[in-house]
């Protein structure tokens, strides 16, 4: 069984192995042990102090095979995008250049630097073992975060954003970066990507061009890549669109990838959540559900089979109960997969 739970220090090597094997870049998870360890510490603090802390929280989950103890994925949430610092994006907007006198009207796309998404709920750090990429556990790993938010909805900003990887090739060439950021950072894309995960984000505010960027001045390839996702992100995009997310006007300032936006209460997962008392028992057939306990500190979520029924308790398979750490009569949450 695959279980979503908070990351702990002993997951360190497991996460490192996982990051080595996933191709997609996960800027928010550094491939450096000290930094990674710091991330886990932050996450642990967030889980432990969730109720009384005013500070931004940063949660990191892992997906564990309960049989072998091996890790198969990571996913994370920041309660406030930027973690107290500015969160940078470009907003793609239009300016009309028109002259009645000359009978000319042309609509020009312009990128405006924006901090507007600072403080929104940010879904991040998603990485999954390629072996599970096309399974229901892909959904589990991503959507468990919405189940988690349901445990303490007040802790999160109603609006959720997700930065989707933009387009770059195997050699790390990123046309958008080369046309925009590189001219000011003097760094190639892999290097800046590395800095993003390793260094503080101060360099970002120091170097990013503050003036709006006229899209028509960019090379065609860079302009076309604005708001387009890397094909490795197709699956996550599909999943998020199904959840009710939509493509916003914001893009990643580095690779031009899209920022998807949604609202917690309108996501499929959140809207369909039901709460009932657990009744561990064998189940012969039913539907596949995301099932979680209601703990914030020791949150757990799995995929399992249920029959929803009409009473205030619901049968759950005993192995699910065990994985979730719930006993008969404990409240659980579930939402259709």
């Amino acid at each position: 069984m695959y279980l979503i739970r908070p990351a702990i220090f002993s997951d360190l090597t497991g996460i490192e192995r996982l990051l080595d094997e996933t191709e997609a870049r996960v800027t928010t998870l550094p491939k450096d042990r000290d930094q990674l360890s710091e991330r886990i510490a932050e996450s642990k603090d967030s889980f432990d102090n969730a109720s009384d802390s005013e500070k931004p929280s940063s949660y990191l989950f892992v997906m564990e095979n309960t049989g072998t103890g091996e890790l198969y994925g990571t996913s994370g949430i920041d309660s406030e995008a930027g973690n107290g610092y500015p969160f940078f994006n470009y907003r793609l907007d239009k300016i009309v250049h028109a002259s009645h006198h000359l009978n000319i009207s042309s609509k020009v796309s312009v990128l405006f630097l924006s901090h507007e998404l600072t403080g929104k709920t940010l879904l991040r750090s998603f990485s999954i073992s390629p072996s599970l990429h096309d399974t229901e556990y892909f959904d589990l790993l991503s959507r468990a975060r919405l189940m988690f938010m349901a445990t303490q909805p007040d802790k999160f900003h109603q609006e959720i954003i997700v930065e989707i990887q933009g387009i770059f090739d195997d050699k790390g060439n990123c046309p958008f970066w080369d046309a925009v950021g590189r001219k000011f950072f003097d760094l190639d894309f892999p290097t800046v990507d590395y800095y993003c995960s390793m260094k503080s984000k101060t360099f970002m505010s120091e170097l990013i061009p503050q003036h709006p960027v006229y899209v028509p001045l960019l090379p065609a390839e860079a302009a076309e890549n604005i708001g387009r996702n890397h094909e490795a992100a197709n699956r996550i995009c599909q999943l998020l669109y199904k959840e009710g997310f939509y493509q916003s006007k914001f893009i990643d300032p580095f690779d031009g990838g899209p920022v998807l936006k949604g609202e917690i209460q309108y996501t499929q997962t959140y809207r369909n959540i039901r709460y009932k008392k657990a009744y561990p028992a064998e189940i012969s057939n039913g539907m596949r559900y995301l099932i979680s306990n209601r703990s914030h500190e020791d949150f757990r979520c799995v995929v399992g089979t249920l029959v929803e029924g009409i009473g205030d308790s619901v049968r759950i398979p005993p192995d699910v109960a065990e994985a979730l750490n719930v006993e008969k009569g404990d409240s659980i949450a579930f939402s259709l997969l």
Partner: peptide, 14 residues
């Protein structure tokens, strides 16, 4: 326009 970051040793005049 000058962009400068000590942290990553970039100083760029545009």
């Amino acid at each position: 326009t000058v962009h400068s970051s000590r942290e990553i040793s970039v100083h760029k005049i545009t």
